[in-house]
Amino acid sequence: MDEVFKALADASRRSLLDRLHANNGQTLNELCDGLDMTRQAVTKHLGILEAANLVTTLRHGREKLHYINPVPIHQIGERWIKKFERGKLAALSELKRQLEKRDE
């Protein structure tokens, strides 16, 4: 999970993920197109994203396509976000229970 947080702790890498989210399955050329980053920088960032399993590649004919892989992000959501929401939900249902009890 460390790799995932490290990979996400960079605006350029997050923007690459956003670009893949908007248009999944892109070649390196397509990803570089219109970006204010050198091809080498994009390649380096993609390597870090791949190592964190946030990006996965697929051979499609002669092309290598890059796909966003949201599974690790989902795992972070489960571990670090839902956990805290559960407390909030429990507090709300307790509040509901208490308020309804007064009406009885």
Partner: peptide, 12 residues
């Protein structure tokens, strides 16, 4: 040949 819309990977 169209490309896949989604590719998901997980290591278990």
């Amino acid at each position: 040949m169209s490309k896949p819309e989604f590719v998901y990977v997980t290591y278990i």
